[in-house]
Design a protein around this nucleic acid. Structure first.
Lengths: 344, 344
DNA sequence: TTGTAAGCGTTATCAG
DNA sequence: CTGATAACGCTTACAA
């Protein structure tokens, strides 16, 4: 049982007593072959359930039709949805996707890029680990002429296509939405200031307030640690302060959830007492509505766009490369009813 | 810019004016080589940043060190966590993981298995689409001597290693937990009866009730459609009935969430009026506590176990194959406080 | 200790 | 129209 050896072009040639080159031609080739021969070959091929060996092809053609993807963690909705998008496009264009996790470790990311080049992947899509602040491994890829696309966590040090989310617009629109609903006291709770996403979101928040001439005194951004306890304390402080905001723009899902929890504990109702809009990618967050309005990242689109850019890059390798950064828009999942509408 | 051609063993041999076989030996080989030569070769290899071409190796050794994974949807927490586990083990044992989605389509699943064999993957891990009721494509793999492991959605028609969750025990334990908390009126809401998970969970539920001698009249399993509206109606009917149960065992996450929603609308408090335990894999479900106690599937372990079994299979290919089904236990995430404790 | 040559499965080139 | 041959990068008998 078991065929022991997968059928090759050679088997067909032996069976038909013709040369392998004829078989090869019959299978792919153009016109330079007698119709009957071709038919015969195809028939036998089908019969034997022949499948071309893509490894051999890869060796010959010096391309693998494989795209390598490096992400921090697959089991993270953002990453997995993005990969789904990548896979979708790759599949439709005849490419395969190989996945690697960096587990947020720089070292592992480096190893992964090495494995990828050893595998001779045709291109790489990466979202770097949060430990990564050196980029030699990526430069290495580029130097080896392996096309690279970065998404989400990108860096200015590398010159290549990048796909990111328009954080500025997302924060701006969310804040504007709150203002239009009558809020004038909106706090922005966010994480470490040095991250680009933090800065962009903050800028969007501030610009919206400025546009609507909200006094600078009511413009408050609170940076808090990603550590659960510290985050909790910071949030508690905000809600306990005498001038409690009527709305919150939460910069990351975890903050949004923490706000929900704290407010519940304080017996404040959401959104009647405090409205919350938070960045959140979890499909389950639907069930939180109307407590929480969410800013969803277009993860699937990020994946699709990244794959498209990469494959284009792969297929016109020689061409003059102009790299650009694509900004995709977020989607706001607004709860049906809002504070002020309700009070009417 | 760009090296044009990745450095090969040949480049090293030319550089050193020795034969390729010597280089090869220096790089892998045992003792049959002069120390100095080896050092020299290694040095040059490092200098040129040589990386063995795994495509060539694959062709020669007739193995790719690639594991193919087919899942319905990557962007599904169950699948992506499982893949994470697979990747983890694969990585540690020198394998790569290539991902395919079936999008719950039988046709696409078949195509995927074909692509996988064309790629000459060393083995395949699959969770079949819910459309899949023919298994020729899987038999085909086995016939081609490509090891196969199934997880979660398995089928009896295929004889191979399988990794599933112990649904029976999960349902039994959850039900027992509710009983120990004083509930005697527990309803089981579940989906289509023909699925194996449904049957196993139902059996677990029933056996727990029997063990504690709950009268048969209070043993009620309601099957409802997976369609949102119909599900909603079925659930509403249960809670509106004069003999409303005091606890619910929800067979799938969607049902659990639907219960939460309906109960909220009816102004019934959870878990004071009705306690709910539901199967749910979403990491976000933590925020639902204490409303919902969850039965979590050990997704990561499923992936790890599947990969281990597969790689073992790959590496002792000839050996006598005894296939078995591994049942992994679920984890109950019980809310801290429960109905009856609270009422005290 | 080192080199030569064959072979893994294909395709392309060049003769016939 | 068809067949022999080289080549892709590497390993491994077998010779030297």
């Amino acid at each position: 049982m078991g065929e022991q050896h997968l059928v090759t072009i050679k088997d067909i040639s032996r069976r038909l007593k013709i040369s392998v080159s004829t078989v090869s031609r019959a299978l792919r080739g153009g016109t330079e072959i007698k119709k009957e021969t071709r038919e015969l070959v195809r028939q036998v091929a089908a019969e034997l359930n022949y499948q071309p060996n893509s490894i051999a092809l890869s060796l010959k053609e010096k391309r693998t039709k494989v795209i390598g993807v490096i992400v921090p963690e697959i089991a993270n909705n953002f990453c997995s949805s993005t990969i789904a998008g990548i896979e979708e496009i790759a599949y439709s264009r005849g490419y395969y996707v190989t996945i690697f996790q960096s587990h947020e470790r720089y070292g592992r990311e480096v190893t992964n890029t090495q494995l990828l080049t050893a595998r001779r992947v045709d291109g790489v899509i990466i979202s770097v680990s949060n430990e990564t602040n050196r980029y030699d491994h990526l430069l290495n890829l580029i130097q080896k002429d392996i096309p690279l696309v970065m998404f989400d966590r990108v860096c200015s040090e590398i010159n290549t296509h990048k796909v990111v989310v328009n954080d500025y617009a997302a924060a701006f629109n969310a804040t504007e939405h709150l203002i239009k609903q009558g809020h004038t006291d909106i706090a922005h709770i966010t994480i470490a200031d040095f991250l680009s996403i933090t800065q962009n979101r903050k800028k969007g928040y501030e610009d919206a307030l400025k546009k609507y001439k909200i006094p600078a005194g009511k413009r408050r951004t609170v940076h808090c640690s990603f550590d659960a306890k510290e985050m909790d304390r910071a949030i508690r402080a905000i809600f306990n302060s005498p001038n409690r905001p009527t709305a919150i723009l939460a910069s990351v899902e975890r903050i949004a959830i923490a706000c929900l929890t704290v407010l519940k504990e304080m017996n404040l109702s959401i959104p009647e007492d405090v409205a919350i809009i938070g960045f959140s990618d979890n499909p389950l967050n639907n069930i939180l509505k109307p407590s929480l309005s969410c800013i969803r990242q277009p993860t699937y689109e990020i994946g699709k766009k990244s794959a498209e850019l990469l494959i284009d890059l792969i297929e016109q390798k020689g061409a003059g490369k102009k790299f650009h950064t694509v900004q995709l828009d977020t989607v706001m999942d607004i709860m049906e009813s809002s504070v002020f509408e309700r009070k009417n």
